[in-house]
Design a protein around this nucleic acid. Sequence first.
DNA 1: ACAAAATTTAACCAAATGGTTGAACCATTC
DNA 2: GAATGGTTCAACCATTTGGTTAAATTTTGT
Lengths: 204, 204
Amino acid sequence: MSEKATPTEEKILRAAEKIFLEKGYAGTRMQVVADEAEINKAMLHYYFRSKEKLFRVILTDAVNEVLPILIASLSSDKKVIPKLHDLVSNYTALLLKRPQLPLFIMHELSQNQGKFVTDLALRANTQPVMLTFFQQVVEAGESGEVYPISPVQLLLHVLSLTVFPFIARPMIATMANLPDELFQQVLDERTQEVIRFLDAGLKP
Amino acid sequence: MSEKATPTEEKILRAAEKIFLEKGYAGTRMQVVADEAEINKAMLHYYFRSKEKLFRVILTDAVNEVLPILIASLSSDKKVIPKLHDLVSNYTALLLKRPQLPLFIMHELSQNQGKFVTDLALRANTQPVMLTFFQQVVEAGESGEVYPISPVQLLLHVLSLTVFPFIARPMIATMANLPDELFQQVLDERTQEVIRFLDAGLKP
DNA sequence: ACAAAATTTAACCAAATGGTTGAACCATTC
DNA sequence: GAATGGTTCAACCATTTGGTTAAATTTTGT
């Protein structure tokens, strides 16, 4: 969350987060945010100037919930496999609490072509971390520690297995006619199954 | 695509598809669709009555590009593994041509809670196909044909590995600082790598 | 050839939407 | 306790947006 804030500012941020994550930027009405925060619409502008400014705060916060986990998991001094285990379990734990995060971020970034993400990525220092990790994967492949695999493909594997179920839940639950409790149980067991599957797919 | 259509109707549908897939329902302006189709805004309403009606056509078409592949791949008379290979290669081939499809569908379905998807799923007869496939997976696990795995987890694995990279492309490309051509190449090689990874993860 | 039907257009409309304003309210300080 | 500066609100505003209309144009059936 961004900074210490007055109670009103807090209420606005909580409300804005809820509505923006649910409806996206274009689908959000300032009046709805104001209602949700139980304040006057003018307050939104008093504290945040414009819809776009308010949105940028929420989107930045959202990305900042997600990026540090990637950085922390991949930049430890562990070997490749344990790093990936950390990634999977840390992300799954986060997404069980905040399932709307990925779809929101992906959708908004797909609009915002470039610019905004680039800034965040630079500020969060993702790129060198990724590069180092990629090298580690290549070396682990050469030394026989893991199956020799393109580092990008590997990263895609791990993120896909971890994040996608939370994005696709409504569609898959409907198509396969799965009751909510069953899908929830599947998600709860997800970490161990992904780790097991990943280990098997990476055996040299 | 839906039905035979007059040239104007065609132009509208092409334009509407482009804009809706790019901007989503809430982010789309009827005037922009009209401009893209090089027609008067009134024509949109003459042919499709309302924004919502026009949108429903586009969303339905989009889902109908995606569902039949799932059905066809899973309801053949092949064994589990070849079915999954079909799924991966058919979907990857589609998404290489139509990369915006999944994010668009997921985003809009997440708004539309239930109703709409349910109709489509019923009409497309997904649910019995899924059920039969789930049973086949359980049996294949028991007979030692594949590693014994929860069918839902397996389905999530396959769809995740196949679909997610197309959704997350902008974010990952930026974070890892990957040039477009490299990412494109990764996607081109995706089918074989996913199949290889999947086979390894399913070995009994 | 001509009338009826379908198609296209420009002008228009009402509602919704992001944003502003000026007055009121409140807390702190002198 | 009045002045001060920050906070809140109701009313208002300009623009945008989805949608309509009535007339003009083109197409079609006879």
